[in-house]
Design a protein around this nucleic acid. Sequence first.
DNA 1: TCCGGTAGTCAACGCTTGTTGGCCTACGCT
DNA 2: AGCGTAGGCCAACAAGCGTTGACTACCGGA
Lengths: 186, 186
Amino acid sequence: MTTARRSDATRAAILEAARERFAADGYERATIRAIAREAGIDPSMVMRYYGNKEGLFAAASEIDLALPALGALPSRHIGAVLVNHFLDRWERDDVLTGLLRVGVTNEAGAARMQAVFEEQLGPVTLGVCPRPEEAPARAALVASQILGMALARYVLRLRPAVDMDRDELVAWLAPTVQRYLTAEKP
Amino acid sequence: MTTARRSDATRAAILEAARERFAADGYERATIRAIAREAGIDPSMVMRYYGNKEGLFAAASEIDLALPALGALPSRHIGAVLVNHFLDRWERDDVLTGLLRVGVTNEAGAARMQAVFEEQLGPVTLGVCPRPEEAPARAALVASQILGMALARYVLRLRPAVDMDRDELVAWLAPTVQRYLTAEKP
DNA sequence: TCCGGTAGTCAACGCTTGTTGGCCTACGCT
DNA sequence: AGCGTAGGCCAACAAGCGTTGACTACCGGA
């Protein structure tokens, strides 16, 4: 392993501040100056450690969805498990919100979001859906419902979506996801 | 009615260009200068006619979803009708895409999107769902699925979501929307 | 035919942005 | 103790932004 650098704390502070600003403001309005101010250092340090703004975003938007292996559990629960997992993941930190906010207006952000879902959600769906060639379409359907709810609840903050409690939300969404994954093609 | 002004053609050109740029770039990257260039006039004309950038966006994001009255048709078709209508509306022009792109990073855009769905989708759901007090939550659920698919298909351009054809898409989404509107609370 | 107001251009303003290079400081190894 | 170097700050840059005000051209009614 590489030896710990003296600057690791600063690098981490920058990354944390960057995630916060990207999540709150999106790509353009999250300025390097604001990120540096929040991290308590000079803007030029950001450039030194991450090259440029794009590089900073690339580093700040690295994420592991840590999706569970669905094959092991009773197939009629996978909808609920998946929805719960995503809601947890969305509320733990700002990374997914940032990814969504940036992906909508920034080419690189959209590409990153595409890659995350293809590489991490794709394999999971492949394991549980009836015909493997349908897996990508089913994954996209699941993504549409998950992303849509995240958009309504965490980004646009539509009142009823924010007010619904967790159980209610899962009770509504789980059957949808379940059907997208396991039902016969309609 | 107000008499036609000589400048109406210019005003319309500005609005058209603005919708295009907002839809393609979002709020910050859609510059007044670029909009003016696309409309073939000077940037200062935009200010003259719409006051400032916010005013321009307000004018460019006015939209009538023109949702059909669902009460009149057999209740088992309302899912399909609604999904089809939204897909049509999304593909006819850039306004909804612009609203979505701007709403994600801009406070005023988010408020506008909130208002559009509350005022136009709200009443429609009220007419078809079992208990009126559940209408807002059901409307939000429908919005989450519709917006999520629009996001995946028209904004993030996730491959499988783009490649699915219309009939397939409707076949998958219609039952979801149908259930959110008419099924008993789970 | 004159004349007022509308349509439009032009040049500039103040500000913020990403990014750069030079300079200082202080840690940690020998 | 001395010194190289990594960590950090400061000041400035060019470019682009929204916005403003002064100025010109021209159409239409009197």
